[in-house]
Structure formats: structure tokens, C-alpha cells
Design a protein around this nucleic acid. Sequence first.
DNA 1: CGATCGTCGATTGTCAACAATCGACCGGAA
DNA 2: TTCCGGTCGATTGTTGACAATCGACGATCG
Lengths: 237, 237
Amino acid sequence: MPTLDPVPRSTLRAHVAERLRAAILAGDVAPGAPLVETTLSQRFDVSRGPLREALRQLIEEGLLVTVPYTGTHVASLSVEDVHEIYSLRTALEVFAFEQVWERRDDRFRRELAHRNVALLATIDAGDDRASIASELELHGLVYEASGHKLLQRAWHGLRGRLQLYWAAHHRAHGRRGPRRDSHDSYIAAALGDDLAAMRLEIADHMRRGVEVTERFLRSLPAAAGREFNGVTKGDMR
Amino acid sequence: MPTLDPVPRSTLRAHVAERLRAAILAGDVAPGAPLVETTLSQRFDVSRGPLREALRQLIEEGLLVTVPYTGTHVASLSVEDVHEIYSLRTALEVFAFEQVWERRDDRFRRELAHRNVALLATIDAGDDRASIASELELHGLVYEASGHKLLQRAWHGLRGRLQLYWAAHHRAHGRRGPRRDSHDSYIAAALGDDLAAMRLEIADHMRRGVEVTERFLRSLPAAAGREFNGVTKGDMR
DNA sequence: CGATCGTCGATTGTCAACAATCGACCGGAA
DNA sequence: TTCCGGTCGATTGTTGACAATCGACGATCG
């Protein structure tokens, strides 16, 4: 049954942005890697105009950084950035649950359970990339259910940076996907009736997320320092 | 004493974005008003390229909306949008104070007091525009003090929309600036030692902000409905 | 007279050439 | 050898022309 919603207007910049974003988040292009406009425009078979507009969008999303007349490269997150992502995400997700809490219905609960089993399936299949996507889908539910457009917008901004971080983590470290039991308490709290417990659970969940970063950093040679995303001075240029 | 920071690289798109944003937030161009690229590019004496990139940026900031091949106009906020702004702002400002709370020092307290007297001065001077700016400066302090870049980014996004709303409010209603005593309890709580009280104060402060909207809407003829920003069907096109 | 379809002006999307700027390289002088 | 200055290639910034698309107007047919 085809939907009869308005067909999305399509522009080159939108397609380019989508493709390029996917490439970055998939880790196909490393953090810190330079992006040359002429090269990219040839690769995508598009002129520099639409390409540049796509680049601006990804810059806004925090996936790229640019210096006028000098160049743009894939953003590389610092340790502080990762801490900021998780701390702000904690605040947003708590807020999202506060918005949704009294309006949770069967549809919400079923969807939550559904996304959880989907996550477990990708974990069991050993598919890292898919399990990361599934985890984001799971956490995304509460934002969708909130019906809060600005909140969703903020979440998308954070989600992009999170994916960038995970892609870099995966690239540099080889990542096992999330542990199989990592969301049990989260789901339980989200289905339960104790909002305060949910707040604590979110904070704890994020704390565990940050902990992975810390462990990862300690496992690196000390010289790697703060900018850990596989960037060495050599390949910045 | 001149600062020795790197001089900012300048591009046309940045200047255009700045000027256009200022014009919109000052209310010089009404919500819903169409923006024609060729007209604007002539007015600013730049070609359409940089202009378009500036437009894309303002779209990202939520100040403009666009439909491919059709046109772009100044965003007009709905009642729901205003509610979203204030509710999310509550969450963010609470989070900001949580981040700052234990690190408040004399410099923070002095700056807070300083911005408060600046606000009072603009109110006493009867300068609406300046008092709005002062109020934003006052609230902005905690975000700056947090040193949390992502949080500041989120605040900037909200602040732009807030200014857009206030500009529209001012345009349609004639706005008295904030009441002279509107921030007394806010300042007191921010200087005090009770974080829970600060949370309540922020929530209450925002509630009062939303209340102004509600009162404003009830004061309008019923026909004006949800899209209140001075937009009638006639001038959208 | 009303509805429908084609046409047309207006507007945005896209492109390829040109200008401005930057960082690196290289040569020379202290 | 080291530091300084100039030059040059590479890259982004900017421009004006061309193509695609849209909404409105008007003609035509029932």
C-alpha cells in the first residue's frame, strides 16, 4: 500500500549531503581527513555549488570543520567533546522521558519492546554497524514519542556526533557492539512506573557509555593524547 | 588594550548571514515575508552564491523556512513552537546551572550582578530592544560559565528562535520590556546555595514567560488563531 | 458558467569560469 | 646552519549565465 504523502522535493545538495554524511558516519572517511571540493564534486559528478551547500550543512551538524580559504576536514572529537555529548544527552533524554512519561501507552511499550528485540537480534548476529544503528533507534523512540520538534532536532544533532564518535572508536579500536544485557535495566525502567528511577537509569547508562571512552583512552599509548580519533599530525593535510 | 586573538577570517556569506539575521531579529522583515534571492543579492550587492549559503545557515538556525524551487520566507512560529522553546529552555538552563553550581566563584557572582544592573538600566531607560538584549545577556551567563560548547550551541539555537518570537510579539502587540522585578528571584536563587530552589525558580521563570504568550493570544481576535506572528494568508506570497 | 488543461513569467537549482587567499617551497643573506 | 622573504601551486571564495521547476493566469471545452 503506497503512501499518498507529498513526494519529497529533491535537490542535489540534499542527495550529496545524505551520501557524504553516510560515508562519514560509516567511517569510510577518517576523522581529520581533508575534503577537497573539486575532488568531491568530481566524485559525485556534481558542480561545486550544490556540493558546497551540502558541506555547509554537515558543518552545521558538527561532522565537518572548515577554515575559510584553507580547507575543510572531517571533525575529530576530543575527549571533552565526548564528555559533552554524553552529559548533554543525559539531560535531553531525561527531559524526553519527563515529557512522555504520563502519555506512555501500549503502542509506546510495544514499540519499545520491538526495538529492543531488534537490537538483541543484531547483537546476536554479530553485526557491529547494525547493532549501533539499532541502539540509536531504541534510544530514539522516546524523542519521537515526545512529539517535541525542537527536542528531536537537538537529538539529531547529538546523534550525528555520537555516530561520528562510534565510527572513530570502531575504526581505531575495533568495537564490539553493545553488550547483550546493556539495555535490560533501561527497558525495565522505561516500562516501569518510577520516573525518578528512570532518571537515575539514564544517568547511569550514560556514565557507562563515558566509561567505555575512558577505558579506550587508557588503552592507547599516552602519546595519542586528547585527539584520539586516529588523527596524527601527518594525515591532517 | 587590543586583543591578540587570531583575526577572524571574513567571507561574504558570513557578513550576509549576520546582517540578514540582525534584520530579521530586529523585526525589520516580518515573519512569513518572502525572501527573493535575486532581490536580496542586489540589496546586499553580492552574487547569489554567497547569499544562498547565508540563507542555508539561517534556515539551519530556524529563522527561515524554504521549499525547493518555490521560495524561502521568514519563519513564523506557532503556539506549539513557543511552548517547545520555553520547555526545552527550562531543561537546558537547569542543566547549565547544575554544571556550574559547584564552580560558581566571585567572578561569576559579580558578572551576574553586573548584567542585572545593566538590565535594570535598559528597563528604566524604556528601551525595549535593549532590554530584551540585556535579558538574553543575563540568561546567557550561565551557559558561558558552563564552558560546555555543545550546550552553548543549543542555547544559541534557542536564543535565535526566542528573539524571533519576541520580535514578532513586539511587532504585533507592542511589547513592554520585561518587568523591573522580573529577575529578582532568579538572581537571588542563582546567588544562593539551594540548587533545588534554583531548579524551581527556572521552571517558574519560564512558566511566566509562556504565560505572556497565552495572555497575548487571548487578547487577539479569535480568528488570528495559531499562527500569530502577524501572518495572514495574504502576505505569505 | 465552471472546470480543466496548457502556457508563461518568476524563482530557485545548477554549472563552469574567474578572483582572492593561503600554505609550502625555495633561494639567499646573516 | 638558520632565519627571512618572495614566489608559486593549490584550494576556496565569488560571479554571471543557463537549466529546471513551480504557481498563476488565461484559453478552451463541456
